[in-house]
């Protein structure tokens, strides 16, 4: 077992750490009102999120608002159990960003380059699921333009291979990329929408799984 286990065990238990309290306070007092009044977030399919078993939420990606808005949908006490998977080279690039994203968004940082046995992303994701956490993954890998959804990478398919009965929840985000596009820092208050699809288990080859995931999200786009 790696030396990470004792820390993870503390966070995963129901104890209130400073980080979890800070996250709950920020979401309750700042992020949720921001989503309701500034963004005017509309949600369809919220009922699909009411479940206790670990899931992997899969969505299109065009903005930093994506993760924040998805996290705002969950009850405050659940927040520490939900880990958005994020690129370590970007979200741990300096001490401030690292502490900020880990405290407020509870990210699961994964390596994109120089992967070895120690920092293997697949292993980290699987261990999080086995510990009872849920993940938020953007299979496009990076923020797109918002207009055209990019091709999904195979990471989720690899994860499903290791955890075959993994519950997948597809989601489609509308207008986040319009509101806060890549490269911008002040959001424009367009109305944004989150459409959540029914949870499902996906089987097949890696290619088939990836294609099924893409179609599931695309289906929600066309509604």
């Amino acid at each position: 077992m790696s030396s990470e286990t004792p820390n993870r065990a503390r966070v995963n238990s129901k104890s209130l750490t400073l980080q979890s309290v800070a996250q709950m306070v920020v979401f309750a007092l700042i992020i949720r009102p921001f989503m309701a009044l500034f963004i005017g977030l509309r949600v369809r399919g919220r009922e699909h999120l009411v479940r206790s078993a670990p899931f992997v939420l899969v969505a299109n990606h065009s903005s930093h608002l994506d993760t924040i808005s998805l996290l705002s949908l969950f009850g405050l006490s659940r927040l520490r159990r939900i880990r958005p998977v994020a690129a370590a080279d970007y979200f741990e690039r300096n001490a401030f960003v690292s502490i900020f994203t880990k405290t407020l968004f509870n990210i699961l940082p994964i390596a994109r380059k120089n992967i070895n046995a120690e920092n293997n992303p697949l292993r980290k994701m699987r261990e999080a699921i086995e510990a009872g956490d849920s993940l938020i993954i953007f299979p496009e890998g990076t923020r797109g333009s918002g207009e055209q959804m990019g091709n999904f990478r195979s990471g989720v398919a690899h994860l499903i291979e290791e955890v075959p009965d993994l519950t997948i929840i597809p989601a489609y985000l509308v207008n986040m990329g319009r509101s806060l596009p890549k490269g911008e820092f002040i959001p424009v208050p367009f109305f944004c929408e989150i459409r959540i699809g029914a949870p499902r288990v996906i089987k097949g080859s890696r290619k088939e799984i990836t294609r099924t995931l893409e179609n599931a999200v695309r289906e929600l786009a066309e509604e």
Binding site: S145, N175, R178, P181, V188, P189, F190, F191
Partner: peptide, 11 residues
Amino acid sequence: KEYVTLLKTRP
């Protein structure tokens, strides 16, 4: 907000 959301805005 409602008006701008319906417009075809450019990046």
